[in-house]
Nucleic acid binder design. Structure first.
Length: 279
DNA sequence: GGTAGACCTGGACGC
DNA sequence: GCGTCCAGGTCTACC
């Protein structure tokens, strides 16, 4: 299921139950309204529950946000056709997996991706939770439920506060600079969601963001539905080495080479690969 | 273009 | 409990 596609469901304000039967998020609409949203699978797609009566335009915005988060608009049929020929991917074709959970805004996903770099996963969870708890707006009826802070909210925080209070460390100026650029209108990240730009051009734009390097750009390209790049991190190097190089030290070119024949789907093939028998 | 060192935090380890 | 070392991507300065 899309909830378990990667660790994003563990990052605030996402939350879910232990058996992944529902996914919840606290979402900030453009009107400023903060909604508690619960998503559950249904016979025909998903059901969405909110804690408020919504205006028509708010309903439309929420509908678009949920569709984006779950990747409901994506077509993986050509990938499944290839995956059925590969034993390490057969299960995913059978269960129609492949979608990657996304945050409501690309801004949120860029910040989260920066917070995954050069740290352990528990550090990513901690930094992300701190941003939400310290600077995110709360739901009216429940002050413990907070949305991910809007760019304007982070842009108004002092870099030393981000460094010491939210404990982002050296990432603080990267996150602040990004938030300020988006808040000022110098950077329109959300426009990249439905951009027609080819992957190399998108990658160039992403690499222009301070704190986003090769790994982060590839991760964000996957989130944007471009699967022709692999987010090579230390885990990727380890798993590919164990799978095809007998555990010998390798670099990013070997990871790319291992999945090269998957063409435009190589990032997704890597992402969904069954590593359980590696090593 | 390639490389070395710095950045910051948490966890593991030794004392 | 304290100090030291290391892992984790990216940036910057330097060659």
């Amino acid at each position: 299921m899309v909830i378990r596609s990667h660790g994003w469901h563990q990052l605030a304000p996402f939350r879910c139950d232990d058996s992944f039967t529902w996914l919840a998020n606290t979402v900030r609409l453009s009107t400023g309204r903060i909604l508690d949203v619960v998503i559950q699978p249904a016979a025909e797609g998903v059901t969405v529950q909110v804690n408020h009566e919504l205006l028509a335009e708010e309903q439309a915005e929420l509908h678009a946000a949920v569709k984006w988060m779950l990747g409901l608009e994506m077509d993986f049929s050509s990938f499944y056709a290839l995956a059925r020929q590969e034993p390490k991917l057969q299960r995913l074709a059978e269960s129609a997996r492949g979608r990657i959970l996304r945050s409501p805004t690309l801004f949120e996903d860029v910040v989260k991706t920066i917070l995954t770099t050069n740290t352990i996963w528990s550090g990513t969870i901690r930094m992300n939770r701190a941003l939400v708890e310290l600077y995110g707006s709360a739901v009216d009826s429940d002050p413990t439920r907070r949305a991910f802070p809007a760019p304007e909210q982070i842009a108004g925080v002092d870099v030393d506060q981000l460094r010491k209070e939210a404990r982002l460390g050296y990432r603080a100026p990267y996150v602040l600079e990004l938030a300020q650029a988006v808040a000022d209108g110098r950077l329109d990240l959300e426009a990249l969601k439905d951009s027609e730009l080819p992957s190399p051009e998108l990658r160039k734009r992403l690499l222009g963001i301070k704190g986003v390097g090769n790994y982060a750009a590839a991760n964000l390209l996957m989130i944007l539905g471009h699967y022709d790049a692999i987010p090579v991190d230390s885990w990727a190097l380890k798993m590919v080495s164990q799978e095809w190089y007998n555990g010998a030290p390798i670099g990013p070119p070997e990871v790319e080479a291992a999945f090269e024949h998957w063409g435009v789907w190589k990032g997704l093939a890597y992402w969904m690969w069954d590593w359980s028998t590696s090593g």
